[in-house]
Write a protein that binds this DNA or RNA. Sequence first.
DNA 1: TAAATTAGCGTACGTTGGACGCAATGACAA
DNA 2: TTGTCATTGCGTCCAACGTACGCTAATTTA
Lengths: 236, 236
Amino acid sequence: MSDGVTDALWPAPSPARKRGPRPKLSVEDVVTAGIAVADAEGVAAVTMQRVADELGAAKMALYRHVRGKTELIALMLDSALGEAPETKGENWRAHIGVWARTMHERMSRHPWTTELVVTRTVPGPAEMGWFEAGLAALARTPLTGAERLDTLALLSNQVTASVRQAVVAANPEASLAAAMAPILETYGSRFPHTVAAFSETGESGGQDDALGFGIERILDGVASLISWRRSPTDSK
Amino acid sequence: MSDGVTDALWPAPSPARKRGPRPKLSVEDVVTAGIAVADAEGVAAVTMQRVADELGAAKMALYRHVRGKTELIALMLDSALGEAPETKGENWRAHIGVWARTMHERMSRHPWTTELVVTRTVPGPAEMGWFEAGLAALARTPLTGAERLDTLALLSNQVTASVRQAVVAANPEASLAAAMAPILETYGSRFPHTVAAFSETGESGGQDDALGFGIERILDGVASLISWRRSPTDSK
DNA sequence: TAAATTAGCGTACGTTGGACGCAATGACAA
DNA sequence: TTGTCATTGCGTCCAACGTACGCTAATTTA
């Protein structure tokens, strides 16, 4: 039932008991150090050893404040997301747009978050806050509950994916185009459309507004569903 | 430059030389065994040791056919994707829809693929084939090269995400709704819209067609861009 | 038959995450 | 003040991981 992570993300108000030596470390310290390591060297570098070094403590000291690495990672993710923006108001499209772009900005600051949303299970308070904010923005639309959830999933997937893409594009060696280039040079004849699409884009050009494109396309799609809901006789 | 993975995914035609003992194992054997393990126990269980056991061989024997675990994983992914469907024709929407749904079906058969697309860099032949097929479906649209690439990214992200979601929903303990339920029971008052959305959906109902919803919304969005491209005076 | 090449694999090592228990600390009861 | 004992930090130990290295045996080629 409990994997322990839930308790850590949603801590019961502590009994405020004090006895024994004054703690030099706190959960926040550990999480902050973990985030610092991840920001600097990627999530793969987040080792109990490495985090402990960052704090000038011994590896096993961390286990007093964090049940294990899984829990540490979960706490780091929730902390990195931060608080969701306010999204109450009439214009659903504007608000959900802000929601998505704010999320993009937040994740861009901690690129490693994109690697974690894949594995994560239990949502923490921050993530729940984002959920709530997104649903609030869609509150006045005629969408069903399931459709609202699906819309949020759609948008957050797009945000995650475009952050990931931007990160990868940052170091030119790992870019998709760069990875494909040598392959296309040899096997290009087998992939004419691919060659065409990339050559049309120019090589360095297409400073991709993949985020903007994706969000606008999705919101267009949702908008057309909404307007159809409101008056089914409208355009197809 | 070469991380070695490229050479493995795009093998040069082998010199067909033969000397020394007859190989009991082949690259395909290793990759197949790896896929079998991943299918049965998840990608985390794919250990060199575990794969070797699967083949009745010693751990170090694998390294004769695969440069390392990274390479093995890359080969597994490309192999699991398989060949892309034919997508030539007039009706772009129908073809790209089939493309997305086929991809969904393919990945659903090997759910662990969703965990790998996050990390992967160099595309293999199969993935390139999917790329090419997707672009072929969009060939007759008035979209620019960059827009076509963005559209494919949008769709494949959605496919990946919904496969992941379906997998998670398969074992009820890990479902998002199930994970949220106990939290909402305690802190529900802080998340009224979330409670509303989930209660409206019913508890077991909403047998989510998240895939369908997402794809249709995206295609609606792309369609509206396309029709605007064709005649900018049309509907907004 | 001898030389050359190659597949399989045994050994060894560094790095992980984590169980366990000891020693120092310091709030409380006496 | 003095003992009690919960709590913190951490040293030790271990299993599991990926993989470098080199030996042995099989097989082709000369």
